[in-house]
Amino acid sequence: MSLLDFARGPALQWSLGIFVVGVLWRLLGVLLLRTRKDLSEPRRDAAWKGLRLIALRSWPRKEFLGGTAFGEVLGYAFHIGFLLALFFYVPHVLFFADIARGLFGTDLHGLTGLNWPTLPNGVVTLLSAISIAALVAVLIHRIVSPVKRLISNFDDYFSWLVTIAPLATGMAAFAHLGGWPYERLLAVHLLSAELLLVWFPFGKLMHAFTIFVERGSTGMLFERKGASL
């Protein structure tokens, strides 16, 4: 079996399986913990309005902006770049369409009812480059900022690595870098994405899911009290 076949076959299935198992395990493992009913008299009845914190916390209050804007902008740069490249690069879309076909017997259009748009390669290349640059800056920031350095652990560095890896290998494959046969580059790219899938549920990348739970529950908790969001 060639490396590419391995990446497309067993590695893909296993990583997807591990991803699904891990995400459910971790999410249910905390979401099914007990909750106590809050018996205090709410100040505001419509606690659900606190869900607005999910959107609200996407940018710091102006009072905090001074020290955090830099990190936020970098964060946005690599998240947007990453997500757009992930979901709107032509071969990716076709790849996902293939999942849909393989798993559910229908294409993306049938599955989501959407006409999945795609981005021109040039734009994706630019986005990936921005993402990579922002991620490098994020790493440097993590290393030079005393606060971030102190509170960082293996998870932070490894998650960084598995995030930048698919971007970097994707660019390398796109540019036929390094004189490697394209298929090996492609296989490495796939494998790096699979590494991301495998690591995802076990490290901090899980924030992509938990962030909504956290912001939502904090928002509702605070809204109930009329406290500042």
Partner: peptide, 22 residues
């Protein structure tokens, strides 16, 4: 771009295992 994603059944198994572990 064909990847061998396995079948809906294997995915279903992953969902089952994950749920059980959770």
């Amino acid at each position: 771009s064909t990847g061998q994603w396995g079948s809906a059944r294997t995915l279903g198994m992953a969902v089952g295992v994950g749920t059980a572990l959770g």
